[in-house]
Amino acid sequence: MTKKILVIDDDPDLVLAVRMPLESAGYKVFSAGTQAEGLAAVDEVKPDLIILDVMMDTHTAGFQLAQKLHGAGANPAHKAIPILMVTAVHQTTPLRFAPDEDYLPVDAFIDKPINPKALLDLVSSLLQKT
């Protein structure tokens, strides 16, 4: 069955950069541009994977959304969907953004600029786990 991926990012260029490799690999890609749209889309689309940008309309929008989806008290249906977070943190300060059970409930990180091949590898390994 075709896997569905929801991309939540307010930068349309990044959405395109992510959509191109994913669609060519056979995934069905949906996108949302804000936190609110994203939350609505999760319920509507019921994706198999969510790709979330760390910063959207505000600096912490990505984190907040991740908390809403995976944090304590979140909907179990939401918690089941793996989240891949797209970060803009540059290489010499990664120490704060390791996937950490207590702090940031996402399943994996990928840095900008996106390397399409790396993205596909990461996505397929995340989808295999579920």
Binding site: L14, K112, N115
Partner: peptide
């Protein structure tokens, strides 16, 4: 630096796509 990085991130992501044959 954050504002400077964002367009570079987006631009390079698209470049990588062309280079890796997805366009």
């Amino acid at each position: 630096t954050h504002e400077l990085r964002a367009p570079l991130g987006a631009g390079l992501s698209l470049m990588h796509n062309i280079q890796q044959g997805y366009a």
